[in-house]
Simulated assay, not measured.
Amino acid sequence: MDRHISAPVGRETAEELRAGDYVYITGTIYTARDAGHKRMYETLREGGDLPINIEGQAIYYMGPSPAREGRPIGSAGPTTASRMDKYTPELLDLGMGAMIGKGKRSQEVIDAVVRNKAVYFAAVGGAGALLSKCITSSEIVAYEDLGTEAIRKLTVVNLPVIVVIDSKGNNLYETAVKEYRKI
Protein backbone atom coordinates (compact mmCIF):
# COMPACT_ATOMS: atom_id res chain seq x y z
CA MET A 1 0.00 0.00 0.00
CA ASP A 2 1.30 3.48 -0.85
CA ARG A 3 1.16 5.97 2.01
CA HIS A 4 2.07 9.64 2.26
CA ILE A 5 3.01 10.79 5.75
CA SER A 6 4.37 13.89 7.45
CA ALA A 7 7.43 14.05 9.64
CA PRO A 8 7.93 14.16 12.56
CA VAL A 9 6.27 10.74 12.82
CA GLY A 10 3.85 10.45 15.72
CA ARG A 11 2.85 7.17 17.32
CA GLU A 12 -0.61 7.31 15.75
CA THR A 13 0.92 7.48 12.28
CA ALA A 14 3.47 4.75 13.07
CA GLU A 15 0.72 2.45 14.33
CA GLU A 16 -1.15 2.76 11.01
CA LEU A 17 1.83 1.60 8.95
CA ARG A 18 2.41 -2.05 8.08
CA ALA A 19 5.54 -3.93 7.04
CA GLY A 20 5.71 -3.78 3.26
CA ASP A 21 3.98 -0.40 2.89
CA TYR A 22 5.59 2.01 0.45
CA VAL A 23 5.78 5.36 2.20
CA TYR A 24 6.60 8.88 1.01
CA ILE A 25 7.77 11.17 3.81
CA THR A 26 7.39 14.95 3.69
CA GLY A 27 8.57 17.25 6.46
CA THR A 28 11.53 17.51 8.81
CA ILE A 29 13.85 14.61 9.55
CA TYR A 30 17.35 14.40 11.03
CA THR A 31 20.49 12.53 10.05
CA ALA A 32 22.83 10.71 12.41
CA ARG A 33 25.36 7.97 11.82
CA ASP A 34 27.79 6.04 14.00
CA ALA A 35 29.77 8.96 15.42
CA GLY A 36 26.68 11.10 16.00
CA HIS A 37 24.93 8.26 17.81
CA LYS A 38 27.99 7.60 19.93
CA ARG A 39 28.18 11.28 20.89
CA MET A 40 24.47 11.38 21.80
CA TYR A 41 24.90 8.21 23.88
CA GLU A 42 27.89 9.68 25.72
CA THR A 43 25.97 12.92 26.34
CA LEU A 44 23.11 10.95 27.91
CA ARG A 45 25.58 8.92 30.03
CA GLU A 46 27.02 12.18 31.34
CA GLY A 47 23.54 13.46 32.27
CA GLY A 48 23.35 15.96 29.41
CA ASP A 49 20.57 16.76 26.98
CA LEU A 50 20.36 15.59 23.40
CA PRO A 51 21.11 18.30 20.82
CA ILE A 52 17.64 17.84 19.25
CA ASN A 53 14.19 17.17 20.64
CA ILE A 54 13.96 13.47 19.77
CA GLU A 55 10.19 13.18 20.37
CA GLY A 56 8.56 11.72 17.26
CA GLN A 57 11.60 12.44 15.12
CA ALA A 58 12.75 10.30 12.22
CA ILE A 59 16.50 9.72 12.17
CA TYR A 60 17.98 8.92 8.76
CA TYR A 61 21.18 6.90 9.01
CA MET A 62 23.02 8.85 6.34
CA GLY A 63 26.19 10.86 5.84
CA PRO A 64 25.93 12.89 2.63
CA SER A 65 28.57 13.58 0.05
CA PRO A 66 29.38 17.25 -0.67
CA ALA A 67 26.62 19.21 -2.37
CA ARG A 68 26.94 20.16 -6.00
CA GLU A 69 26.52 23.81 -6.88
CA GLY A 70 22.90 24.87 -6.43
CA ARG A 71 21.92 21.79 -4.43
CA PRO A 72 21.33 21.60 -0.64
CA ILE A 73 23.08 18.22 -0.30
CA GLY A 74 25.08 15.65 -2.21
CA SER A 75 24.34 11.97 -2.56
CA ALA A 76 22.16 10.91 0.38
CA GLY A 77 21.94 7.13 0.52
CA PRO A 78 21.28 5.09 3.66
CA THR A 79 23.95 3.40 5.72
CA THR A 80 23.72 0.03 7.46
CA ALA A 81 21.35 0.40 10.40
CA SER A 82 22.75 -2.39 12.57
CA ARG A 83 25.75 -0.20 13.40
CA MET A 84 23.39 2.00 15.44
CA ASP A 85 21.68 -0.92 17.23
CA LYS A 86 23.47 -0.50 20.57
CA TYR A 87 22.22 3.12 20.81
CA THR A 88 18.75 2.77 19.28
CA PRO A 89 16.65 1.22 22.08
CA GLU A 90 17.44 4.12 24.41
CA LEU A 91 16.58 6.71 21.74
CA LEU A 92 13.31 4.91 21.04
CA ASP A 93 12.54 4.88 24.78
CA LEU A 94 13.13 8.66 24.78
CA GLY A 95 10.46 9.08 22.09
CA MET A 96 12.14 8.73 18.69
CA GLY A 97 9.37 7.85 16.24
CA ALA A 98 11.16 6.36 13.24
CA MET A 99 14.47 5.31 11.76
CA ILE A 100 15.53 5.15 8.13
CA GLY A 101 18.42 2.96 7.06
CA LYS A 102 19.14 -0.30 5.34
CA GLY A 103 19.55 -3.84 6.57
CA LYS A 104 18.43 -5.97 9.48
CA ARG A 105 18.02 -4.87 13.10
CA SER A 106 18.76 -6.68 16.36
CA GLN A 107 16.03 -8.26 18.46
CA GLU A 108 16.61 -5.53 21.10
CA VAL A 109 15.79 -2.86 18.50
CA ILE A 110 12.73 -4.76 17.29
CA ASP A 111 11.49 -5.08 20.88
CA ALA A 112 12.03 -1.33 21.41
CA VAL A 113 10.15 -0.52 18.17
CA VAL A 114 7.16 -2.53 19.43
CA ARG A 115 7.39 -1.19 23.00
CA ASN A 116 7.41 2.40 21.76
CA LYS A 117 5.05 1.99 18.80
CA ALA A 118 7.69 3.24 16.39
CA VAL A 119 8.68 2.18 12.86
CA TYR A 120 11.83 1.23 10.95
CA PHE A 121 11.97 2.22 7.30
CA ALA A 122 14.45 1.12 4.65
CA ALA A 123 15.63 3.41 1.89
CA VAL A 124 17.12 1.90 -1.24
CA GLY A 125 20.87 1.51 -0.94
CA GLY A 126 22.81 2.65 -3.99
CA ALA A 127 20.18 5.25 -4.88
CA GLY A 128 21.70 8.16 -2.93
CA ALA A 129 21.81 10.52 -5.90
CA LEU A 130 18.11 9.96 -6.57
CA LEU A 131 17.16 10.20 -2.89
CA SER A 132 18.98 13.54 -2.62
CA LYS A 133 16.48 15.03 -5.06
CA CYS A 134 13.82 14.68 -2.34
CA ILE A 135 15.83 16.89 0.04
CA THR A 136 15.03 20.59 -0.29
CA SER A 137 17.17 21.89 2.59
CA SER A 138 19.97 20.69 4.84
CA GLU A 139 21.61 22.35 7.82
CA ILE A 140 24.04 21.07 10.42
CA VAL A 141 22.45 21.37 13.86
CA ALA A 142 24.96 19.51 16.06
CA TYR A 143 28.45 18.04 16.14
CA GLU A 144 29.82 20.00 13.17
CA ASP A 145 33.28 18.65 14.02
CA LEU A 146 32.11 15.20 12.86
CA GLY A 147 31.97 16.35 9.22
CA THR A 148 29.64 14.15 7.19
CA GLU A 149 28.56 12.43 10.41
CA ALA A 150 27.31 15.68 11.97
CA ILE A 151 23.62 15.77 12.85
CA ARG A 152 21.70 17.52 10.09
CA LYS A 153 18.17 18.80 9.91
CA LEU A 154 16.66 17.97 6.53
CA THR A 155 13.49 19.11 4.84
CA VAL A 156 12.24 16.32 2.59
CA VAL A 157 9.44 16.07 0.05
CA ASN A 158 8.14 12.61 -0.84
CA LEU A 159 11.23 10.74 0.36
CA PRO A 160 10.51 7.13 -0.70
CA VAL A 161 10.97 4.42 1.93
CA ILE A 162 9.55 0.99 2.72
CA VAL A 163 8.26 -0.09 6.14
CA VAL A 164 10.51 -2.96 7.21
CA ILE A 165 9.56 -3.29 10.90
CA ASP A 166 6.18 -1.98 11.95
CA SER A 167 4.88 -1.10 15.40
CA LYS A 168 3.54 -4.64 15.85
CA GLY A 169 6.96 -6.19 15.19
CA ASN A 170 6.16 -7.50 11.71
CA ASN A 171 9.45 -7.72 9.82
CA LEU A 172 9.46 -7.50 6.03
CA TYR A 173 12.89 -9.11 5.84
CA GLU A 174 11.43 -12.25 7.41
CA THR A 175 8.02 -12.31 5.70
CA ALA A 176 9.49 -11.58 2.24
CA VAL A 177 11.86 -14.54 2.54
CA LYS A 178 8.96 -16.82 3.51
CA GLU A 179 6.92 -15.59 0.54
CA TYR A 180 9.84 -16.08 -1.82
CA ARG A 181 10.39 -19.64 -0.62
CA LYS A 182 6.75 -20.46 -1.41
CA ILE A 183 7.38 -19.52 -5.04
Rank of each mutant, 00 (worst) to 15 (best):
1 M>P: 08
1 M>E: 12
3 R>A: 14
4 H>I: 10
20 G>C: 08
22 Y>M: 11
24 Y>P: 04
29 I>F: 04
31 T>P: 07
31 T>Q: 05
32 A>N: 08
38 K>Q: 15
38 K>Y: 12
44 L>K: 01
47 G>L: 05
53 N>Y: 00
54 I>F: 06
54 I>Y: 01
55 E>W: 01
58 A>P: 08
69 E>S: 15
69 E>G: 11
76 A>L: 11
80 T>R: 01
86 K>Q: 14
88 T>S: 12
91 L>I: 04
93 D>P: 03
94 L>W: 00
97 G>C: 09
108 E>H: 03
112 A>S: 13
120 Y>F: 13
120 Y>L: 14
123 A>G: 13
124 V>T: 14
124 V>P: 00
124 V>I: 14
130 L>S: 11
142 A>C: 09
145 D>L: 00
147 G>E: 12
149 E>C: 06
150 A>F: 08
154 L>I: 06
154 L>N: 06
154 L>H: 06
155 T>H: 12
156 V>Q: 05
159 L>F: 15
159 L>H: 04
161 V>R: 00
163 V>D: 08
164 V>Q: 04
164 V>S: 01
165 I>R: 02
165 I>L: 14
169 G>M: 06
169 G>D: 10
170 N>Q: 08
170 N>T: 13
173 Y>P: 01
177 V>S: 08
179 E>I: 01
183 I>K: 12
